[in-house]
Nucleic acid binder design. Structure first.
Length: 577
RNA sequence: GCGGAAUUAGCUCAGCUGGAUAGAGCGCCGGUCUACGAAACCGGAGGUCGCAGGUUCGACUCCUGCAUUCCGCGCCA
């Protein structure tokens, strides 16, 4: 286990009752060692799980089965000895030995409900941790070419990348969000030629239409604006159309600005904000591309063949060598890619995560190989990658393949227009990145519990509604008063909700460590279900005042956790729906 | 052909980095509102975790092979 992973584990466990139990078990094991029953302690601490089946207790431990062989004792016998040796404590009410040798622990109910106080006292800090310890991490995502509107795949990247960033921030990392902007290279020429052709009144059926031209309707809009002399204000530039159909440079600049502006607006509507847009063109301007080539040459990793310059990427695990400089003199895309990642390293990011579509997966080996070839001390597995699979869009039972704006692919803007920002973000982030995603537009619009976004948001709105009603009677006093009566929270549905609330810090830490934001989405679905069950089983605003106040505190804590969890996904937590 | 990802209920998907009788939602069947928000809740039926081996106290999870699907595989980006 790496030092980092080990630090993470300790940090995560500190926030739950797991470490308390782990400490008790470790004490017992030490005792057994001193008695000569065990030869030594295990390398890692005892593994403690939350059983799925309630009859197996609140926590369980497999340590007896792990140590049985080495100790020469039957697992169940060893389990008995461990239980008998456990120090006195208030955490565990009782424990069982089950199956082949599991030790099942039943936690005292007060430890479950105590989390309500913790949540209300910590507020927004509940669920956060500090295993990042303020270290820097860069997350690069979206990085779309400025040749058209963002498509649904970019949307998935935006949702995952931004949520990852939020998770890392919540676990103590200092995150920089970066968008790599491919504003140089052949595809930009194709863009300029396409706009020019439209400016000349040609359409894609015209015999002189550029070979790799972009055919979408948005090209016509750009051409019309350029010829009309419109001004375009994008985040990093303002350009006025020169209206000269022969000036390809002016067209290029104008078109890039137009599409940059459109992407900016899409991302704004999606509530995703970047700290830095890194321009590919700057790598040429600064000489970084040239420098990359000469460094790789000096390091002896290149060779010339058929008038081209090659990098021996096979030295670093690639299946074949790659061309760096084409025989006609230009560089392949992979050279600026290496220069770009080198710049990340030079900027001091010892940890970098690239969120990309899985269709780019073959560049990973190449980029890493190029970075190794530079021989500047970059670790082999640097940078990290999170790859997401394709997205298909379904509507009324059929796949949607056409979009008005592009003439082809469905855009992120289409999705936002159809179902709103919240539902779009939730659905795009709620599935494991490695699985292909079917985005069902009708499902995202449904207002029932088949739609998890509304299901979770509805739970939040319900909490707010109850709290509002209680406040009309006695202000906020009820909630704080309830902390004195948490022992009243003793029904199964109520305890189950409290247990779920207590899991939140583990879920956040684990999702951040595994770089899997969908864990949070799944957790929120379960938490909302627990809340709805509790809500239907027990009237909050009725019964004994002490019970009511305790339940109000529980509701306030639930509201807090749902809001925090939704925020990690970039989804709003409405008070009313 | 090579590389990557996937394969779990009729459908869409989880499965906590090896644990106990594999879970949700939808759909299907049956219940619950003169209402703290029914956008909700409760119950039922539904599975050979693609197939075959292996590793071990224990495999949906790890390893090997096979099958199927998707994505890449240019001196394009």
């Amino acid at each position: 286990m790496s030092p980092r992973a080990s630090a993470t584990r300790v940090d995560r466990d500190r926030m739950t009752m797991k470490p308390e139990l782990a400490a008790l078990i470790t004490t017992a094991l030490e005792q057994l060692v001193s008695q000569g029953v065990l030869a030594g302690l295990p390398d890692a601490g005892p593994q403690i799980d939350r059983p799925k089946d309630p009859s197996h207790g609140d926590l369980s431990c497999n340590i007896a089965m792990v140590l049985a062989k080495r100790a020469g004792i039957a697992p169940r016998d060893l389990a008995t000895q461990i239980i008998d040796t456990l120090p006195d404590n208030t955490l565990i009410d009782r424990c069982d030995i089950a199956g082949p040798g599991f030790i099942n622990f039943f936690v005292n109910a007060s430890h479950h409900t105590a989390v309500v106080r913790t949540i209300l006292e910590s507020g927004l800090a509940y669920g956060k941790s500090n295993c990042g310890a303020g270290r820097q991490v860069q997350v690069e995502f979206v990085s779309a070419n400025p040749t058209g509107p963002l498509h649904v795949g970019h949307g998935r990247g935006a949702a995952i990348g931004d949520s990852l960033s939020r998770l890392l921030e919540a676990t103590g990392w200092s995150v920089q969000r970066e968008f790599y902007y491919n504003d140089a290279g052949q595809q930009i020429n194709n863009l300029a030629l396409s706009v020019q052709a439209r400016g000349q009144g040609k359409d894609p059926d015209h015999p002189d239409w550029p070979a790799d031209g972009y055919q979408g309707g948005y090209i016509e809009d750009v051409a019309a604006a350029y010829m009309a002399g419109d001004s375009v204000q994008a985040a990093d530039r303002e350009i006025t159309g020169a209206a000269d159909v022969d000036d390809l440079d002016a067209i290029r600049e104008f078109a890039v600005a137009c599409l940059r502006r459109e992407q900016d607006q899409d991302l704004q509507a999606f509530q995703v904000v970047f700290d830095e847009y890194f321009l590919e063109s700057s790598l040429y301007d600064s000489g970084a591309v040239e420098e990359t080539v000469t460094t790789l040459q000096a390091a002896g990793h290149t060779f010339e063949d058929q008038d081209a310059l090659w990098l021996r990427t096979t030295d670093f695990g690639d299946d074949k060598d790659r061309v760096m400089r084409k025989s006609e003199g230009g560089y392949t895309y992979f050279v600026p890619d290496v220069a770009y990642h080198h710049s990340k390293w030079q900027r001091g990011y010892q940890r970098v995560i690239n969120e990309q579509g899985a269709d780019h997966h073959s560049t990973i080996t190449r980029v890493r190989a190029g970075l190794q070839g530079l021989n500047v001390g970059i670790p082999e597995g640097w940078p990290e990658y999170v790859l997401h699979q394709m997205v298909t869009v379904m509507r009324e039972g059929a796949e949607v393949k056409l979009s008005k704006r592009t003439g082809g692919y469905v855009t992120l803007r289409d999705l936002i227009d159809w179902v709103g920002c919240d539902a779009t973000r939730y659905f795009l982030v709620a599935r494991a990145p490695t699985s292909q995603l079917t985005f069902d537009v009708d499902l995202a619009l449904a207002r029932s519990n088949e739609n998890p976004v509304y299901y979770i948001q509805y739970a939040h709105a319900r909490c707010v509604s109850v709290l509002r009603k209680a406040a009309e009677i006695a202000g906020d006093a009820h909630v704080s008063a309830g902390l004195a009566y948490l022992a009243r929270l003793d029904e199964p549905e109520t305890l189950s909700l409290a247990v779920s609330l207590g899991r939140f810090p583990e879920v956040v830490a684990n999702a951040a460590e595994r770089l899997e934001p969908h864990d949070v989405a799944n957790y929120l679905r379960e938490l909302a279900a627990d809340f709805h069950s509790f809500y239907n089983a027990h009237k909050v605003l009725e019964g004994a005042p002490e019970t009511m106040q305790a339940r109000l505190a529980l509701v306030a804590a639930t509201r807090q956790v749902i809001a925090s969890g939704l925020d990690l996904l970039g989804v709003s937590a409405p008070d009313v729906m």
